[in-house]
Amino acid sequence: MLHTCNPDTWPVRVKPAYGAQMTEPEAPAPEGAVVPDVGVRDAVEPLVVLDRVNKHFGSLHVLQDIDLTVHRGEVVVVIGPSGSGKSTLCRTINRLETIDGGSITVDGVPLPAEGKALARLRADVGMVFQSFNLFAHKTVLENVTLGPIKAKGVGRREAESHAMELLDRVGVADQAHKMPAQLSGGQQQRVAIARALAMRPKVILFDEPTSALDPEMINEVLDVMVALAKDGMTMVVVTHEMGFARKAAHRVIFMDGGQIVEEADPETFFTAPRSERAKDFLSKILTH
């Protein structure tokens, strides 16, 4: 299934995979410091830029002065304890959550506030949810074609053939005419990934994509995500899957209390975290 991929059917890659450019290891940063965005990263194009983003839920300051740049082709894993603001961060990028201060730009365009301009931007930013959120009244195939047909004006025939390619790619082509409820969680989530890909997005946001899955279904979804990452898709992934982070991420962001506490490449982060908070967090999740 995954091995039958045809790279031509994937969103057009503008540059080589981001990882290919990260040839030189960075100098170790001083204890407790946040790795600055320097060196080789400047050579690639910023795609999603968050600048001093702030958000409150009532009295809770859920995002505090978040600065984050995601480059084209880069895979960023966001990790942190529950309530740290990582999901909220992910959801602000396509404005499912509004922000109180700061700015977010996608491919150089500031997020529009409302209306058709926002809808157009969202068409370029894919999203995969924890709870799949497939349209319950539509077949698998209709789930994947709805966006291209309605939001992009693609013809039905063309949308369907592209959708079938994508469903084949994620290994659920044989389920195309079933309703979402007839599929397993892992299959539903793979359909959700195909639905996001059908829009040929510039970046895909994953909000804890495997957290609602039974253990034996987690890998079938992660495999699809790893393949996507290898093909150069820009991804922001909120997850606790260390295996995925190690295999596919270029950068790990550790959040706590609404702030980015630490960021590093996966190997450094998991083996030698600098902040006490990250050490404490990792000791709790890596012991089992």
């Binding site: 969202r122 959120n133 349209f135 939001a151």
Partner: peptide
Amino acid sequence: VNVGQAEAARAIGLTFGQTLGNV
């Protein structure tokens, strides 16, 4: 209707009217 349905519809770029009418 589960709020996730509307979020998924908005996330693929449907407008308010399309979200309401199609989803």
